[in-house]
Structures are given as C-alpha cells and as structure tokens.
Amino acid sequence: MPALILFWILAIVCIGAALTMVTAANPVRSALSLVVCFLALAVYYVTLSAQFIGAVQVVVYAGAVMVLFLFVIMLLNLGAPVTSSTKGSNQNTAAVALGAILLLVLFISGIFFEIPGKAVSPATAQAQGTVKAVGLTLYNPHLPWLFPFEATSLLLLVAVVGAIVMTRRQV
C-alpha cells in the first residue's frame, strides 16, 4: 500500500511537471519543470530497485544535460517567451487530437499488460540493481553488452569533437 501511495504521488509530480514543461511559454520554466520530472523518474528507478540507474539519471540528466540546456538558454538570452507564429492555427488542435489517439493506443497496450509466471522477489531485484551487479553484467565477456559499451565511448568522442567543431568561431 505505501508503494502504491508513493507511485501516485510521484505520478502526479511527474505528469504535472511534464504538462508544465509543455505549456510554459518561458524556456527557463520549461527546463526547471523537466528537472523536477527527471528527479521524480529517478525516484521511480530507485523504487524499481535500479539504484545505479537512479543515481546516474540524477548525475547525467539533472546534473549535466539540464544545466547545459539552461546554460544555452541564458547564453542566447532566450529567456523571453517566443511569440508563436502558428498561434490559433489548426496545428495545435491537430497535434492534441493526434496525441489523444496515440495515448489511447499506448494505454490499451499498456494497461492490460501482465507478466506471466511468478513475481520476482524484491530481494532478487534488489541484488540486480546494485552498482556491482550492473558492472558485472556490463563487462561480462559472455554477454552481448561489452561491444556496444565500447562503441558508445566512440560515439561520445565523436559527439565531443562534433560539438567543438560546430560551435567554434571562424578565425
């Protein structure tokens, strides 16, 4: 029962923050509501016994990615709300209608979903989310995660070089 109450509180925070992000005219407010949403998701990950992912979510998303967003917003002085040129056009109505259809489809596929077989005990799940367990799985040569992991490092390197080359001022 406490788990269910926590779920609903977090769900309200999460969805409320996401809605605020979409509806806010001001990018800084959007970014802050998204941070709140990410923090709520990190708590979800911890309750789903993925402690490592929860911590990484806070460090990467809330600590680095969103700070970068805020930095760019403030650097380009985009604090003032952008007046939308499509205000009152059909695009918004169409978007919301299509979104409703998508939500319906996703809901139908999600809400009746049940996993066959016996439930996984919390102790087993708890042991799977620790830093040690994640590391052992990620670096195990008999499992298929090691090569993608190293490929990701190459991707990150390319991204770093690309970002520097793109934003460098022409000398």
Binding site: Q51, A55, A62
Partner: peptide, 17 residues
C-alpha cells in the same frame, strides 16, 4: 546505500541550480 559516492556527486552537481 551502495551508490554512496554517486549520491554525493549527484548532490554536488544539483547545487548549481
């Protein structure tokens, strides 16, 4: 907790907000 150091890093990186 088993993520002690990560928790400290997370807290120190959130301080900038």
């Amino acid at each position: 907790v088993n993520i002690g150091l990560l928790f400290m890093l997370a807290a120190s990186s959130l301080g900038v907000y």
